[in-house]
């Protein structure tokens, strides 16, 4: 669906995107991760035909991005990280305006708007002024706006930024729904764990360069190979540490009744530890991979060149 080849964008001496190459298969969700200022927005703006690359090429559904921008705009739905709304329009008028801007005939617009409002759970706000919506609703409305022309590829620049947890979950659910509708999605974030839940592929970018581009499973496995396990027990911490030491692991008390233990191994090794703890009658409450694993991977891969 999307092929990016040696894409570069420089402004004078400053290189925002440096020889970026990646592929996104049809129907997949590609997570675009990187620290702030890594070049995610610039890349997305190039793909959305809002910026001309200095060199390199990109194709969406076989069409070259710079050669036929009008055709690309029909194929792509773009949601910027920061966007505004026309405060003097109502929700349905807002969507009608963008549908008309995409050249959708008037007769079809009402049906499309009805469906999109339904999908975004905004039907009850149809008559409300756009300005009166909450941030989460505006985000969903903007997502609906990207979909008015039924694009095959969605480019979403940090769609969940600034949202409260509930609104984040709602956006995630909508994205899953869109995936099931066969849309290809590129979504950016600077939080890797957030993306691994819904993406099939992840590309990690730093200082304009692609550091890793791989299926999520591979990234997760990579994090599994050297991770930190979090073991919570009711009491008998010292005994647990001793037991683990006998098995060759070094555990430390992280806080309260939680132990943290660096771990290298696969899932059967994990199972072995759990069995041993239970057999020794340790009051085990939970045994899990530390949430910071993916973050650690992210920190390791992106060495903090961009601040």
């Amino acid at each position: 669906m999307l092929i990016v080849e040696d894409l570069c964008k420089s402004y004078g001496k400053f290189v925002a995107v440096d020889n970026l190459s990646f592929k996104v298969n049809e129907g997949s969700i590609f997570g675009f991760v990187g620290p702030n200022g890594a070049g995610k927005t610039t890349t997305m703006r190039i793909l959305a035909t809002l910026l001309r690359p200095s060199s390199g090429r990109a194709w969406v559904a076989g069409e070259e991005v710079t050669a036929r921008p009008k055709r690309i705009r029909q194929l792509v739905g773009y949601m910027p990280d920061f966007f505004g709304v026309y405060d003097d329009l109502k929700v349905d008028e807002y969507l009608d305006f963008y549908s008309a801007s995409y050249g959708i005939p008037m007769q079809q617009r009402k049906k499309i708007i009805d469906e999109l409002l339904e999908l975004m759970d905004l039907s009850h706000k149809r008559e409300a002024y756009v300005d009166s919506l909450s941030r989460g609703m505006k985000q969903r409305l903007c997502l609906a706006r990207c979909l008015v022309h039924d694009p095959a590829l969605l480019i979403l620049d940090e769609p969940a930024s600034g949202l409260d947890p509930r609104a984040r979950v709602e956006v995630r659910e909508i994205l899953k729904e869109l995936k099931s509708m066969g849309k290809t999605i590129i979504i950016s974030s600077h939080i890797l764990p957030e993306l691994t839940e819904m993406c099939s592929h992840v590309g990690i970018i730093e200082a304009g360069k692609m550091v890793v581009s791989a299926p999520v499973d591979q990234i997760v496995n990579r994090s599994l190979s050297r991770q930190v396990l979090e073991i919570r027990v009711l009491d008998r911490l010292e005994q647990t540490i001793g037991l683990l030491q006998e098995m060759g692991y070094t555990a430390e008390i992280a806080e309260g009744n939680i132990l943290e233990m660096p771990f290298t191994g696969d899932q059967s090794d994990m199972n072995h530890i759990i069995k041993a703890l239970v057999q020794a009658d340790i009051p085990l409450v939970s045994f899990a991979e530390s949430k910071s694993n993916l973050e650690n991977i992210f920190m390791e891969l992106t060495k903090g060149v961009v601040q």
Binding site: R45, K70, R73, V76, Y78, F83, V85, S101, C142, R145
Partner: peptide
Amino acid sequence: ERQTFDLLLCTRLS
């Protein structure tokens, strides 16, 4: 200023 211009440019309007 209203941050609506990009949204306008990525439609089919020239």
